[in-house]
Each structure stands twice: as C-alpha cells, then as structure tokens.
Design a protein around this nucleic acid. Sequence first.
RNA 1: GGAGGCUUCGCCUAGUCUGGUCUAUGGCGCCGCACUGCUAAUGCGGUUUGGGGUAACCCCCCAUCCCGGGUUCAAAUCCCGGAGCCUCCGCCA
Length: 425
Amino acid sequence: MIDLRLLRDDPDRVRASQRARGEDVDTVDALISADERSRSSSVRFDQLRSEQKQLGKLIPKAAGDEKAALLAKAGELSAAVKAADAEQDEAAAETQRLLRTLGNLVHPDVPVGGEEDFTVLETLGERRDFEAEGFTPRDHLELGQLLGAIDVERGAKVSGSRFYYLTGVGALLELALVNAAIAQATEAGLTPMLTPALVKPQAMEGTGFLGQAAENVYHLEQDDLYLVGTSEVPLAAYHMDEIIEAKRLPLRYAGFSPCFRREAGTYGKDTRGIFRVHQFDKVEMFSFVAPEEAQAEHQRLLEWEKQWLTGLGLPFQVIDVATGDLGASASRKFDCEAWIPTQGKFRELTSASNCDEFQARRLSVRMRDGKHVRPLATLNGTLCAVPRTIVALLENHQQPDGSVWVPEVLRPYLGGRAVLEPVAR
RNA sequence: GGAGGCUUCGCCUAGUCUGGUCUAUGGCGCCGCACUGCUAAUGCGGUUUGGGGUAACCCCCCAUCCCGGGUUCAAAUCCCGGAGCCUCCGCCA
C-alpha cells in the first residue's frame, strides 16, 4: 500500500496516479475523511485513557466515601473510554480497508494507457528469415508433438483444457532450463529457494494479488489456502513481519515453484499449445533493497533477464509496460517479449516489476537503518517461465526436418545434446 | 486424529497461583560514554514496535506481554475462542 503520510501531504499526486491506472478516484476522498476521523478519535481516546490511568492509581489508596466517589467516576470514564476506543477502531479499520484497495503510485516515466500503449525500449537478438531459409516454420505444438515433448490431448483428458504433459525430451528440456536458470542466478549471487506453493490469505493479500487479480487465483476453501500464481508470493512473504538490518541488504533470492493461474477472462486466447496454461513451473528472482536502490535494482533484474534470453539465443524486445497493464503492486514494469515466428508477434516471456514499498508495507517488512526503522522496497523478475520459454525455443530454433537446435547453455543439462530429434511414432 | 505442555520489549529469563506498587526483572548481545598508552577487562548510561503532540530535537501522551473477544473502576495476571511451537501416542510416508 502507499504511504498514508504521502496521501495526507499530496492527495492530488495519489489521485493522478489512480487516474493513470484507470481506477476510481472517489476512494481517495473517502480515505482522507476516514483517516481524519481515525486521528481525531485517537486523540480523544488517548486523553480519556490517560485520565483513567491517573484515577486507577488513586483508587487502591482511597477508602470509604472517597473511594466510592472515585469508583463512580471511574465507571463513567470507563464507558467513555470504551466508546472512543470503538470509534477509533472502526475508523482505523475503514482507513486500512480503503488504503489496501489503492494500487501503487505509478512511476512518472511509465507510458499512460492500456495494453497496447507500451513503449519499446530496445530490441535484441536476430530474427530468422524462414522464407529465405526455404521453409515454413511449424508452431511449437506441432514441433513438440514431433519431438514427443508435449502432450496436450492427454493433459485435457486428465485435467481439462490448458493442462499438458511434458514427456520425454520435453520433460528433460524443462529440467535443463530450470537447472541452467538456477545456475545463472546462483552465479549472480542470488540465493536459490524452493518455496511453498500454498500460502495463507495474508501472504496473497500482502503481495497485492487479491485485488483486481483475485479472479485469477485458485483458492482452497476447506483450508483457506491459496495456490500461488508465482513464487513472488512466498518469497515476498518470507520476511513478513521482520525488521532487516540495513547492512544485510540487498537480499536476493531465486525461487522455483509451480505456478497456478485460473486464466479467467481469457477464453479463446492462446488456446493452442502451452503458451497459456493453468499450471507451470517458473524460476523467479526476488530482491529486498533500500527504497533508494529500487530503480537501480530494477535495471539489474532486467539485465539478468536479458542475459538469460540472450544465452538462449532468442530474439526479443524489452518494453516499458503502460499504466493500465501494471499489476496493483508495481510502480513500473519491464517485460521481455520473445519473437514467436508462427504468431508474427513478440510475446511476454519475462516481466520485472518494481513494487517500491507497496508490498513491504502490506507485509510489514522493514529495514533498520541506524536508528530508524522504515519500509524497504521489493522487486521481482521472471528468470524462466518454463512453458513459454519452451514455446520460444522450439519455434525459433527449429530446423526444416522438425529437429530443434539446443543453445549451449542448456547442453550440459541435456547430456551434451546439441539437437533434439523427432521421434518415430 | 488423541493427550499434555508452552508463547513476556533482538536471544534467554523473572513475574501469572493471590488483578492495582509492572512505568515488566535479571543475564547475554548490541550502541554510546568514561577509564586503563591497543585489544580485553571494568564502571555508567542506553537498547520493542506503532501512532500522536513538536519546524525539528530533548521530551511528553497513547497503544503494544502470540492474536481476538469477555469480566472488572483496573488485566502480562482471571474467563472464552483462535494461532503457532514442543513432547508423547495413533496413522501415513
């Protein structure tokens, strides 16, 4: 959530940010009045409580009529204290509730607009000219089937649409990608983490996924647990309710976990193959840094993503995502989009978000900086979302005979194989 | 799943039976100062977090003894509910 003090000092900035996100601005006014109510009732409560304490010291010493008079007075005071307390609780709860509905402040450089209004920051890698090479590229599903790597029919039979099996070389390819990604992250100094995939409401809420994104989250009602859509959630919540010494920062993690997404409202989108699925594995980077370091860290995460995609030999572009397409918690988001030949488009493979202090406030993750304790900043970035990376790899590195070239970084994890060959059916 | 125990301001701990003097004790760690020509030792002081007052500091006020309710003029302390941890048993791996 955003800083309440900022809202008091500069409500117009908050309004402007909400507007840019395409969100309701009335909330801001409701919030300000709830906050004022909370503060004034809090002052009254403090005064009454102070009087009550003074009186409480006198009562044990008094006796007889004097004591009876004091007790009578204390009775009245007690009722007043309870009333003020109740009002304060109510107003503070309302303030919190409203505050949590607001998205993060957007960074001033973020392009304003919807999904299509992103800015392209740079384009990297070489796109192949299949026409010049003399063949029509197959899509990832066809390649996956030739290689015996992907089985979506049985995925649908067993679990429904948007589920799949990775088989044979497909399974090996996932393990290779994950190993290579973890190796790169570890090399860069991140701590590898295997995280829970089921989390409590508090963790899900604190990371900002129960707002407008709630419809995409699986919930286990019997246990009141959520299936995470990304290991960002357990990684952010890892330090929940903790105060971290400034000298221990930055803390950087590389989490690996399954990810579950309901993909509500995407009917008919990306229905072929494994580009958009309900369950997949992902290696995610996550940083806890001092707020003043957040922008530099954001660039660092982006650099690691670029290094990864470049190592895989994929052509891609980096975009600055527009305001309307930011998640609730991000102030700015850079996506790396790989070229998908059969779609003739760049598609999102990785995404790096700067959440500033938004998640840290909600999760109460703070840093001790000398005498001061203050919220820190959290950032997250995809290193490797497995199915989409497989899609991009297969399509971009395919050969006319349906075989697929394997980039160097993956070979050590594929028994040295340089090419994946079609299998006889 | 069954039985029992535990949870106190970084860590450990006193206090809970018998409600008010708890503004929560002591040790360790940490920070500052003093002192010994260094380190160590010693002494003194400080050391939860959040909110409010203040231009800011000193300081002052309120809350905070796992969380939420209740009883009471008054709760770390009594009652109810919940969470977490531990031990034993059962079950499964």
